[in-house]
Structure formats: structure tokens, C-alpha cells
Amino acid sequence: MSTGTVTPTTDEQSLEAENLRSRRGFRMPRLLGSATDITLILILIVVVFAVLDFQSFFTVQNFTQILINAALLLVMAVGATFVLITGGVDLSVGSVLVFSGVIAGKVMELFGSAGWGASLAGIAAALVAGTAWGIVNGLVITKLHVPPLIATLGSYGAAQGLAQIITNGNDLKNVPIELVDSIGFGRVFGIPILVIIALVVAAIGGLVLWATRYGRRTYAVGSNAEAARRAGINVDRHLLKVYAFAGMLAGLAGILSFAKFGTTTLAGHATDNLNVIAAVVIGGTSLFGGVGTMIGTVVGTLIPATLANGLVIVGLNSFWRDFAVGVVLVAAVYLDQLRRRSRSPR
């Protein structure tokens, strides 16, 4: 056999053309991969604001502020990246954040709402509450075969409702001072602990996604669940873990939010889910599953945060942020579609 010596078939020629096309489109640094385009957009945004008002915008202090503002969304977006890569979606995150904060508040009340004991109990309670919702989502999706959109829309309503019932609609405000002073406003070497936590979560999430079997199988499940199943991967169990992980991170965001704002902010997270999904998708993760990076998600979270910050600094109404984010979001999905269309038919 010598397939190498025959003249190229049309098949091979079209392959050549395809390779050329993709090579031109993805020549940029390996590290960023598909997040390259969107990173350039973030840099462009930073440059524009720096030109418009260098003194107020381009300072360490202001960048730190942007990171603080993005921290909660980033923590949730790390979980959402996994969920979206499996081809799913999680609409429940903002409500799970609120619910977990409320549970943490109630548990800390048992400990007198003061001291490190109460604080640690609150952190544990928030993580457990978030994970529990994630497991519920995962079970409804894999065992009851309810599509993720509906399953998590259900828990979006249910978690918010339960949080209101538990609190009678009144925000809890009993945060131990230890928690406020550390997670809420504390700094290490000038860097807010809140930001450190968010970045560490993103780094761990990124490593898991990129380097481990769990990450590899997350892509495989989202790329072709049937192929994964036939290759012996337990798809249902994997999905359950992914939703549980996303729930746990929403729980973590719950205790971070409680510490940062000093209240359970019952009414403050109704659109978190959409903001999180927008950030992840802007970062290049495909809504159809199988594709995405954690670096992309970090950048995708920073774009809305930077826009909001910069627009206010240059004196524009921050509602322009919503407009701009909307445009970037649609553009990102359009780019994704273009990439998919350039594939050979399966």
C-alpha cells in the first residue's frame, strides 16, 4: 500500500485549503488559543479608556477596583465554563448565590454571628448549600432527562423563593466582623483577598480543564456525548460532577458576596446568570459545547467590568455598558458560528 505516492484527491486538496484557512485564522500565540481575538478586544478597550482619561483610569488602584467588581462573577463563571463546555447551561447561579448566603447567615446565627468559628461554619454552610443545588440540577438533568435550560430555570426560581421564605423577605446582615475584615475587605500585599480567591479559583479551574482527565472528558462529553458513552465514559456521572462543581462555586460566591456587602442582597442577583453566561461566551466558550478555555472566561469577565468602570470614568452613563456588552456578546457568538461553519461536514 502506498497512499503517499498517489496524486492528491479532491478530498486532500480541499483539506489543504482548509488547513491554510485555519492556519491564517489561528496563527496567534498558542497560550491564548481561541481567546486571542477577545484578549485583543480587552486590550483595545483598556487603550481607549487610557487615552480618554489616563490619570483616573490607568492606575493600579483603578485596576484593582475592576478586579474587585469582577471577582464574584468570575468565581461563578469558572463553574459555568465547565457547564457550557459540556453543552449545558446553568441559569440558577445567582439564586444559588443568594440561597447559600442565607443558609450561611442562618448557620452563623447559631454560632452567635461572631468569631472565626462562626465564620468557618458559614463558609462551610455556603459551600454545602451551593453543592446541594448543583447536585439537584445534575440529577434532574441526568436522571429525569429535563433539559439543562429548564432544569436550572426551575432551580433559579426555587432557590430564590426558598431564600425569601427563610428570611421572610428581609435581608440578613449578621456577618461576623472577622469575615468582613478578611474576605470582605482584607488585603495581602495590597491585593484584595476577594480578588486572590477569585483568581486562584480560576487558575485551579483552568488547570483542571486543560491538564486533567476530568477536563478532557468535559470536552469529550460536550463534543459528542454518544462517542464518550461508547468509549466507556460514564456521561451522566460526569455531568452530575460538573453541575455540583458549578453549584459549589455559586455557594462560594454566596459567602464572598455576604462578606463583601455585609448583607444577603436578596434582590441583587436576578441577572447574574445572564451576566455569567455572557462573560463565558464572550470568552470563546461555545454554547454548543466541546470548546472553551478558562483564560477566555477570565478575559470575558473582565470586558464587562472594564467597560462599566471606564464608561463611568469618562463620564458616560453606565447603561452604555449593557449596550456594549450586548454587542460584544453577539459578535462573539457570530465568530463562533463562522468557525463552526468552516468545518468539514461530518
Binding site: R216, Y219, A220, G222, S223, N224, E226, A227, A228, R230, A231, G289, G290, V291, R343, R346
Partner: peptide
């Protein structure tokens, strides 16, 4: 029906 993961 091949059973490959197209994105990998």
C-alpha cells in the same frame, strides 16, 4: 456513525 469527538 463514527463516534469521534469532533472538537478533540
Amino acid at each position: 456513525d463514527l463516534a469521534l469527538a469532533p472538537d478533540l
